[in-house]
Computed example of a mutant assay.
Amino acid sequence: MNQKRFLQQIEPIKDKMFRLARRLLVSKEAAEDATQDVLVKLWKRKETLKTYDNLEAFAMTVTKNHCLDELRLKRNNNLRIVHNNYEDHQTGLQKQLETKNELELVEHLINELPQQQQVIIQLREIEQMEYDAIAKILNMNETAVRVNLSRARKKLRSQMQNLQDYGIAEH
């Protein structure tokens, strides 16, 4: 596999790899470094990549494992996500502030979930991955992925309802 072919295959999933790394690691810089490290690993295995049925699932698995290895090495427990991919240029400043606050609130609530549920929410809701691909990435069966996702959604709904009941969240 030449460099051009490799880049054609990796380019569509590079951002997903970064967002997963960002979910698992402390900072944008750490996520960028991890993504680069994984890209180097994939490049070194470029000749065997064609043997994988789902390159995206494989790349995401390598990314997840690399990040978890980094965390084990650094014993870093300050995991946070910053995922602000929502932008609406046609709303007023007040609406933009409300939306930003809502996104920060949801981000905070997601960060309160167990790490496995955080990753599943990231892969399913943000990356829009299929259950079978998530199961492969996390080395789980699809039923376990669905159960964890259901529990995470239920907990998030409950927390949002509690916040609304106390007048903290408007929507």
Rank of each mutant, 00 (worst) to 15 (best):
R5W: 05
A30Y: 01
H171S: 03
Q116P: 01
A57R: 13
I168G: 03
T51W: 09
D53C: 11
T35H: 03
V82W: 02
I126T: 04
N162A: 14
E130H: 13
I110Q: 00
K4L: 07
N2Y: 06
L24S: 00
C67K: 07
Q96A: 12
D132G: 07
E107D: 06
E87T: 09
L42P: 01
A31Y: 00
L109Y: 01
Y86H: 08
Y166P: 00
A31F: 00
L113G: 01
T35Y: 01
Q128N: 10
L123H: 03
D88S: 14
L105E: 09
I10K: 00
K64S: 02
L105I: 09
T51F: 08
I126H: 09
N139K: 15
M140E: 15
I13V: 04
Q9M: 13
V147D: 15
I134W: 10
L109F: 03
N85K: 11
R22H: 13
D53F: 14
L25R: 07
N78R: 13
D88C: 15
L25D: 02
V40T: 08
K50V: 12
N2H: 09
R151C: 12
T143K: 15
V145R: 03
D33E: 11
H83W: 06
L25C: 05
N111S: 13
D15C: 02
D165A: 06
R153Y: 12
I81F: 13
N139M: 08
E170P: 04
C67Q: 01
Q128T: 06
T63V: 02
K154W: 00
E70K: 11
V38A: 05
Q122R: 12
L123K: 04
L113P: 02
I120P: 05
N85G: 06
N139E: 10
V82P: 00
N139Q: 12
